[in-house]
């Protein structure tokens, strides 16, 4: 059973022929070459496969591609090419947030999702905002301080 699924991926309209029950994660990685989306736990707990669906963070391992019909998906590579995303990515690099890097695409999406709803989060709110993303290297402290750094560097940009 193959169907045509149309959606907007990273700002461009795409149409793919695919089984509508395929996971969004697999379609992004295998059919659309978005290797920045990672597979971790496969059950929605680790956040490695996070993407933005209509500008809200979702775990792409839990979404059948059929549910994305006519919606908009953004992955971390696209997000970090925007003005806001660049600030986050640079803050992550400068703040030492990245060790092995596997969780980082998901972390960037979580940070972006958080800052687009809360322009000046407290440490507690940042920890809550990335609570769906598991990192086994850093112990989170440097990720949290890097997100704070992004808040300070961005200033008013997060209020837009």
């Amino acid at each position: 059973m193959i169907k045509d699924i149309d959606f907007i991926l990273n700002g461009k309209k795409v149409t793919i022929k695919v089984n509508p029950l395929s996971r969004l994660l697999d379609v992004l990685r295998d059919n659309l070459n978005c290797k920045d989306v990672k597979e971790g736990c496969s059950e929605g707990e680790c956040g490695a496969c996070s993407v933005l669906l209509d500008d809200r963070i979702v775990t792409s391992c839990l979404i059948p591609i059929g549910a994305v019909q006519n919606h908009e998906i953004k992955t971390s590579n696209y997000v970090t090419s925007t003005e806001k995303g660049k600030i986050i990515a640079e803050a992550f690099a400068d703040g030492g947030a990245v060790q092995c890097g596997f969780c980082i695409p998901g972390m960037i999406i979580a940070a972006y999702d958080l800052l687009s709803r809360n322009s000046n989060p407290t440490e507690e709110e940042i920890r809550l905002g990335i609570s769906g993303n598991i990192c086994r290297c850093t112990g989170y402290d440097l990720i949290v301080s890097s997100i704070r750094l992004a808040v300070e560097r961005g200033g008013d940009i997060w209020k837009k």
Binding site: G44, E45, R56, V58, T59, A110, D113, G129, I130
Partner: peptide
């Protein structure tokens, strides 16, 4: 409930 990303699904 669950993780942030899951709560949007």
């Amino acid at each position: 409930m669950g993780a942030v990303g899951l709560r949007n699904s």
